[in-house]
Amino acid sequence: MGWWNQTSLDDFILQGLFDDSFSHFCLFLLIMLVFLTAVSGNSLTILLICVEPRLHTPMYFLLSQLSLMDLMHVSTTIPKMTINYISGKKSISFMGCATQHFLYLSLGGAECLLLALMSYDRYVAICHPLRYMVLMNRKVGVMMTVMTWLSAAVNSLIHTAILMSFPFCGSRIIHHFYCELPAVFKLVCGDIAVYEKTVYISSIVLLLLPIILVLTSYGLILHSVIQMRSVGSKSNAFAKCSSHLIVVSLWYGAGIFSYMRPRSQRTPLQDKVGSVFYSIITPTLNPLIYTLRNKDVAKALKKILRRDLVT
């Protein structure tokens, strides 16, 4: 038991993204700017949806949950990376690493499921507009959200408990800027071939099955749009879907790149690039995409700005 404590409960070392060079310091400042943009953009989206009555619909309720997930996602990884870089200390405790792993995996899984459910919401709105408030009422939206959060949390808890129960040894250096699953895998001493297969199956469930639902929903939407006679109706339908399609492409594309590749084909640099994209870049772009391309959100923002200027 003492050996297990020594090899498994000691601190880990996060290699991070940057060194002490001036060019990396500039990259660090850029990441900080992106981080602040992500925090302010997602916080603003949540605020707009909460205070604007016209946005109190299932579609925007799901969007507020997406923004909350993105806000929590960047807050799970970037602050610790920032503290380590500024202080010069790269360590993270065993429990800190386990907590970070649980949070990022929960939020990533929840976002995969939520984006699929949002595609169903678009399908109902376009293909069954008269029944929208029946099929997608507030109760259904809340149930979807609760199911999304709980399913992802349970999946993450199981994977975190299993991964952190393996013996860790060697240098204990994580070649990453946070405790991501593929990076922590490389520090395990024992045989994890069976568990790797389990992770791969879990990735299929959380990535490919939602993608199938998204493709099915948009296939039905496309079929319905083709049958529309009005050009205005067609353009309106495409406008409702375009923002979501962009976000879906960015998120699932990065997720497949990071988790569906065989371990033998992974490199630390590729893992870092993929993680930066879906843990920093995508949460920053999501509110910008929805705000700039969504007329209702843009109107709500202008309304609040006018109200503040008047007062």
Rank of each mutant, 00 (worst) to 15 (best):
Trp3Thr: 14
Gln6Lys: 14
Gln6His: 13
Gln6Val: 09
Thr7Trp: 04
Leu9Trp: 15
Leu9Cys: 08
Leu9Lys: 15
Asp11Asn: 09
Asp11Met: 00
Phe12Val: 02
Leu14Ser: 00
Leu17Arg: 12
Phe22Glu: 15
Phe22Cys: 06
Ser23Glu: 14
His24Gln: 09
His24Ala: 07
Cys26Trp: 10
Cys26Pro: 03
Ile31Phe: 05
Met32Asn: 15
Val34Asp: 02
Val34Thr: 04
Ser40Phe: 15
Asn42Gln: 03
Leu44Trp: 07
Glu52Lys: 05
Pro58Tyr: 03
Pro58Ala: 04
Ser64Gln: 01
Ser64Gly: 11
Gln65Leu: 14
Ser67Ile: 00
Ser67Pro: 05
Ser75Glu: 08
Thr76Lys: 05
Ile78Val: 12
Lys80Phe: 08
Met81Ala: 04
Thr82Lys: 00
Thr82Arg: 03
Ile83Pro: 00
Asn84His: 03
Ile86Pro: 06
Lys90Pro: 06
Ser91Cys: 11
Ile92Lys: 00
Ile92Trp: 00
Met95Pro: 03
Met95Ile: 15
Cys97Gly: 00
Ala98Phe: 05
His101Pro: 02
Phe102Cys: 05
Leu107Asp: 01
Ala110Gln: 06
Ala110Leu: 06
Glu111Ala: 08
Leu114Arg: 00
Ala116Met: 03
Ala116Leu: 02
Leu117Thr: 06
Leu117Gln: 06
Ser119Lys: 01
Tyr120Lys: 11
Cys127Arg: 02
Pro129Val: 12
Asn137Pro: 01
Asn137Gln: 13
Met144Asp: 08
Met147Cys: 14
Trp149Ser: 09
Leu150Asp: 04
Ala152Phe: 05
Ala153Ser: 14
Val154Lys: 13
Val154Gly: 10
Leu157Phe: 13
Ile158Asp: 09
His159Pro: 02
Thr160Arg: 03
Ala161Thr: 08
Met164Phe: 14
Ser165His: 14
Ser165Leu: 11
Cys169Asn: 13
Gly170Ile: 09
Ser171Phe: 11
Ile173Ala: 13
Ile173His: 12
Ile174Glu: 00
Ile174Tyr: 00
His175Gly: 03
His175Asp: 14
Ala183His: 08
Val184Met: 15
Phe185Arg: 13
Val188Asn: 10
Val188Asp: 08
Ile192Asp: 04
Ala193Met: 10
Val194His: 14
Tyr200Leu: 10
Ile204Phe: 11
Val205Asn: 04
Leu207Lys: 05
Leu208Ala: 12
Pro210Glu: 00
Ile211Asn: 09
Leu215Gln: 14
Leu215Ile: 11
Ser217Lys: 05
Gly219His: 03
Leu222Ile: 12
His223Ile: 08
Ile226Arg: 15
Gln227Trp: 08
Met228Phe: 11
Ser230Thr: 02
Ser235Glu: 14
Phe238Cys: 10
Phe238Val: 04
Ala239Tyr: 07
Cys241His: 04
Ser242Glu: 10
His244Lys: 05
Ile246His: 03
Leu250Ala: 06
Gly253Phe: 01
Gly255Pro: 01
Ile256Pro: 02
Tyr259Gln: 08
Met260Asn: 06
Arg261Ile: 07
Ser264Thr: 09
Arg266Ala: 04
Pro268Thr: 01
Lys272Asp: 10
Lys272Gln: 13
Tyr278Asn: 00
Tyr278Gln: 03
Ser279Asp: 02
Ile280Ser: 01
Leu288His: 12
Leu288Ala: 09
Thr291Ser: 12
Leu292Met: 13
Lys295Met: 13
Lys295Arg: 15
Val297Gly: 06
Ala298His: 13
Ala298Met: 12
Lys299Met: 10
Leu301Arg: 06
Ile304Arg: 11
Arg306Glu: 14
Thr311Arg: 15
Thr311Asp: 15
Thr311Val: 11
